[in-house]
Design a protein around this nucleic acid. Structure first.
Lengths: 168, 168
DNA sequence: ACAATATACTTGGACTTCCAAGGGTTTGGA
DNA sequence: TCCAAACCCTTGGAAGTCCAAGTATATTGT
């Protein structure tokens, strides 16, 4: 999966190209945004590799985790897709697979015929607990982020996400 | 594309759940990593929307931009996939599409029969210039990152990427 | 009451990513 | 020399993302 490390950071190189071509004022944002994408891809690969033995992906793990925290144990699809901040179609896809493996169930809403409620099955709860333990041990506890960096990173991205309309 | 903002930050909520379930020491990394993924997804959507009128995606834009900076104007596939830090198969996919629209060409390597060189066509150069201008104006210059945040973000992620073996 | 509008979810299509496996080409050791 | 190992790229398959469009159900306004 990992090639041998490059001798130079290709994003830092791109940043210099940006500066020397006259786009200096956009260079820092370009570099930051490109680095965010690369970082997300690294973490996603690591997470998916850790979750594979549990028969999960990160996308599906997030669904289980959300259901595991919900007070009632069930949540409308629309609410879940809102909280996970993915398109409804992406959630449909994830839930199809979670339902096919018996981890989750779609049940009818008592009063609104349009709405489907998601419910964690007992087996889903077991898989969630095991997967979360692995993720905590093997990803979050080994994030390659200094504690101060993790905090600062979250704060910067919170400002960004608020400015982008994610939350108030 | 954008739903109305949520009243609360769902990642901050997840972080609190993590703490109150006894995984306090992993909570900050979990929140930071989840925020990175969400941020990447926001930027990717914005970039793809901006590039769509140019017939590009961000993945394909990156290929053009890389070729545009290369001294010789041509680059082996393997070198390009290394610098863009994507799998060779992903690059094959992007190049297939760039070639189909006439922006790029695969040419034979003079001495190594295994290698294909990528070359930017004149039309590819035009599209690159126009796309880059839009991206600079509409994405990088409006990144929703304070200048200090962009710099700090890049630095934190550089430490992370180095620790993860991206570069020396 | 009923038509128009809005909401909830699914389907189909385009695109990306990765992995596993295969085909060709080159290199290097016996 | 020549066969095995390494390397470069492509194909096929599984997953994820989004958007656009469609179906079904609720809500709203006249």
């Amino acid at each position: 999966m990992l090639n041998s490390p490059l001798p130079r950071d290709p994003i830092a190189d791109a940043r210099e190209q940006w500066v020397s071509h006259g786009w200096a004022s956009e260079a820092d944002a370009m570099a930051a945004i490109t680095a965010v994408m690369r970082t997300a891809s690294i973490y996603l690969q690591r997470a998916d590799a850790i979750l594979k033995p549990h028969g999960l992906t990160f996308a599906r793990f997030e669904v289980l985790a959300l259901l595991g925290f919900s007070k009632r144990g069930s949540l409308p699809m629309s609410r879940a897709s809102e909280l996970l901040q993915v398109h409804a179609t992406s959630l449909t896809n994830s839930v199809d697979r979670l339902e096919a493996t018996g981890l989750v169930q779609r049940i009818a809403h008592p009063t609104d015929g349009r709405t489907r409620l998601l419910e964690l099955n007992p087996q889903g709860l077991e898989v969630l607990n095991a997967a979360r333990e692995d993720l905590n041990k093997m990803l979050f506890a080994q994030s390659n982020l200094a504690p101060k960096d993790a905090t600062e990173l979250f704060e910067i991205l919170s400002r960004f996400r608020r400015a982008s309309g994610d939350f108030l």
